[in-house]
Amino acid sequence: MQIIIQGLLLSGLYALIAMGFTLIFSVGRVLNLAYGAYLLIGGYVYFTISQTLGVPKLIGLLLAAVVGCLVGLLKYRLLVKPLKGDHVAVEISTLILAVVLQAGVVFLYGDSSKILLPIVPGVTQVAGASVTYNLLTATIASWAILIGLYFFVRKTHVGRAMQAVSMDTKGAAISGVDPDKINMFTWGLSGALGATAGVFFASYTQLSPSMWVAPLIISVAVVIVGGIGSIIGTLIVAHIVGFMEVLAVSVIAPELRGVFTMLLIIGVLVIRPQGLFGREEL
């Protein structure tokens, strides 16, 4: 039971982590290898605002999302748009950017890990399994954000325009949608989602300058294994990855956390490169 509950909770968090990455992949057709840096930035902004300066946690979380959003917007304007069309150049530049941001964090905060205090401290019992309030809060918040995002994408004009750009850019343009503005919006949204996920992720694990790598692998796994950019698909694959990790850690060895996710990426690339679901939608 502990494994099932832990798997469900962790998977919800992983879905939130992967969502921002999936959005950019789906709408902008960019494999944003600097995506993990949003989580890094979110974690450290929250650490500075709420843990160091003592500002209320909700404000720290909101500011982390705002800074993530701004970084996303800047990245699109200064890097992705000028290199538009050259996917390799975009991917190399974004990866380099993540490493630069990591160096910046080391410069400002040192290279040792920091403990981010739980957003909500304490432990409770869920169906006989012991669960921290912190992970429970992270999971509930993740689900709330994902459900909100689902309805935003399906039911609003901007959301439908995001879907349209992801499926046919010319079709969107001749419908009066400006693909550039939609891309810009999506990069900002992705940054905000990533930074928010970063606060929850860091409070679940720890804060360190290299904390951007694991979420990036989770996100790449979700896009490659799912083969789609949909919100529902992201949720499903996040649960596959989440349960695999919980099983690996609790049944085999904690050191193998993440290894099976990487093996899954390779396996899907070799056997079914179009992904398990194999179609593109939002």
Partner: peptide, 8 residues
């Protein structure tokens, strides 16, 4: 070529 949004 219509340029419709196929999965909508």
């Amino acid at each position: 070529r219509f340029n419709l949004f196929p999965y909508m």
